[in-house]
Design a protein around this nucleic acid. Structure first.
Lengths: 212, 212
DNA sequence: CGTAATGTTGACAAGGGTCAAGCTTAGTGG
DNA sequence: CCACTAAGCTTGACCCTTGTCAACATTACG
């Protein structure tokens, strides 16, 4: 059903499934199919977005098409605050997903709510700089798997919403390198691959030791 | 004189040389000599810092000593907001420098002032991810020189406050690679080196073309 | 002026990128 | 329900950029 939608759909609701921004006014939910743009670089930033279900990627492009994904966002997470009134990044749906949109003036109360979210995003971005700037391919992939692992509640089964291309563009690697590292982790018994998008972490401590 | 100080010095003043945080209470200025720690990872975060003169580096370390500098801050810039009450990074003086320290409770007014600063830092960090994740050594160094160039008001002479080691740790490169790229830029006529810490940008447009 | 820290350059090695071929999976239509 | 196709993924061979190690040069400082 969702896969057939080519336009985004808007509907109104007052019952968020995840903790909503407390200061929130009436808001909308928008649905997007895989790879649909949520907003584009340079567009006027006029709202905050909270993922209801599915997953979203934020990225930037170089002139020749090289892409860096700066963050993935999953259910409950907020994105789209970008300061000076214009988006500096692209936001796209990774898979079919729903996004709650908050349009409201930036007042003191909203600033108080946004600040901790923005600071958390800042810490995440700066930690990611360490991963990309100073860690090897294996360390990056291990850190990525462990990050998803934690965000999915610590279950051994980790579901990858994103393609190898997305993972590569997030970690500053090529898809071939990502694939090779995953294959090596499997042959080392660190993980089991159940289909290309499901990873079972078998030796979590070994992965953790890798990226200390 | 300053170089002789081994402890930081505190003094009080009410006349900032740069735009201060408007909501500021009485505050202090602290002096640091080169390589002195301003705060450490894990320390309780209880203040905001504004560079009065000199330059500061923020960084993180891996267990084996690999270092990633996430940002340099120069006169007028604010740093040290880190959300959940603890610093996630180290802050150190690059050279002799003075830092204005604001200690005050986080209220709505302060949140309103901090939000745009935090968002700007976030955008900078995410842009830096693109540089480190997807650009070659030459592109990274070019982007770095142009960034300093702009922050120093567009003068052709760019003063490097930091060592090659710092530049390497900021760009995710080794000092040897940084040095080689600078030498190549010089032999290509893109820059002139007047001592190791002064770079004159001769063909700015060539550098700009490099990192598009 | 001498010493230590910092920076440069060269030779070599290795990690990861590129290109290409083949394999899997999911989606489509007969 | 199966076969076909296209997209996504894996694997191999090769190469290039950058890292490593080492020697030397330069600068800063006592």
């Amino acid at each position: 059903m969702l896969a057939r939608r080519t336009q985004r759909q808007i509907l109104h609701t007052g019952h968020p499934a995840h903790p909503a921004l407390p200061a929130s006014q009436p808001h909308q939910i928008a649905f997007y199919t895989a790879n649909k743009e949520i907003y584009g670089q340079g567009e006027r930033a006029s709202a905050l977005y909270q993922v209801e279900f599915g997953a979203v990627r934020l990225y930037r492009l170089l002139a020749d098409g090289r892409r860096q994904i700066s963050a993935f966002h999953v259910a409950g997470e907020v994105f789209g605050f970008e300061g000076d009134g214009h988006h500096h990044f692209f936001a796209e749906a990774i898979c079919n997903c729903a996004v709650r949109i908050y349009r409201q003036p930036l007042d003191a109360q909203l600033a108080c709510e946004m600040l901790p979210i923005a600071l958390k995003a800042l810490v995440r971005a700066q930690e990611h700089l360490l991963v990309i700037g100073r860690q090897s391919a294996a360390e990056r992939v291990a850190a990525f798997l462990l990050d998803l692992h934690e965000r999915q509640g610590g279950l051994p089964q980790v579901e990858l919403a994103m393609s190898r291309t997305d993972i590569g563009d997030y970690l500053g690697l090529t898809i071939e390198t990502v694939s090779r590292v995953l294959s090596r982790f499997r042959s080392q018994g660190y993980i089991r691959l159940k289909g290309t998008r499901t990873v079972e972490l078998v030796r979590t401590e070994a992965l953790r030791a890798l990226c200390m």
